[in-house]
Design a protein around this nucleic acid. Structure first.
Lengths: 155, 155
DNA sequence: GAGCAAGTGTTGCACAATGCAATGGTGACT
DNA sequence: AGTCACCATTGCATTGTGCAACACTTGCTC
């Protein structure tokens, strides 16, 4: 049974390498001008909506100063906007611009299509099992989210 | 059927996010002083054995100048050695030191145990399916490796 | 209402990672 | 002997990063 788990762990590690490579590729393939950390920031805004700087830094797991400067560059690149929060003069609200949203959509699309291509090469008989298995795996990996625990969001 | 593939793609993407997070965690958890790119370099040496600088840059998919300077730092940190190649005076051979090998082993161990923990939380009935499915997926994802194609190695 | 603590974003400083271009040395092949 | 490709390095510029010091704002207390 421990052997059982070992076998699975090996399979997961192998698949993991492939998936990480796919993720990396889907980003480097996009607009040369955008970097992976910048893309992560865009993804955060896309999934959570407009956020203040501190919240972004928190989501990314980086220092607020890093967030400040990354937003500087993304504003310059026209990917996000930074506006004062009318409700609180000490907060700034950062939001995706249309262009930024388009970049996220592009990368996501590319990644989906790459994974789709791989899945299509799988024997059809294995596909149903893959869904069941991966779903169970993802559920088992969902952290209990105990107090204060906050995973940085990864692409 | 296209719907079929879509469903699977979603499941893969979800699992992918979890795995990327696990990978990131297993590195940041190790010795604070090592960075992800440095760790990737160590992994390359661990899997391929001693290499010349150009080969390392190639494996990592980075510019040779980047490899030069990363090796500088890793030599200073005692993780790798850089010695002249007796067979060719224009090449330098970089090899893992004992300490470097220990770091790779440590991270790998940590990652394995984290994945094992997740697998152990899965319903046992799903485990066999996971192995079959992931193996098929990894095989389908193995690029044909047509001429000149060379994927950078990812952790 | 004054004062203080916590929250918020910014800037200075230092360093790692990165690419590109230029350079100097080495090998191999004609 | 000459030429061309390969190899590692260095200079320069940019991004990402953390830490510490600041200045400003809010909220709460006394």
């Amino acid at each position: 049974m421990s052997d059982d788990v070992d076998t699975i762990t090996d399979a997961v590690l192998t698949a993991s390498r492939l998936l990480v490579a796919v993720s990396a590729r889907s980003i480097s393939a996009i607009d040369e001008s955008i970097t992976l950390p910048q893309f992560r920031l865009l993804v955060v805004l896309e999934s959570r909506g407009p956020l203040k700087l501190a919240a972004i830094a928190d989501q990314l797991g980086v220092n607020p100063s890093t967030a400040t400067r990354m937003v500087d560059r993304l504003v310059a690149a026209g990917m996000v906007s930074r506006t004062a929060n009318p409700a609180s003069r000490r907060e700034l609200v950062v939001a995706l611009t249309e262009e930024g949203a388009a970049v996220v959509a592009g990368v996501t699309e590319r990644r989906r299509s790459e994974i789709t291509r791989i899945v299509e090469r799988m024997p059809a008989s294995e596909r149903q099992g893959l869904v069941r298995a991966l779903t169970a795996f993802a559920e088992a990996g969902d952290e209990p989210a105990y107090t204060g625990r906050r995973e940085p969001l990864w692409v």
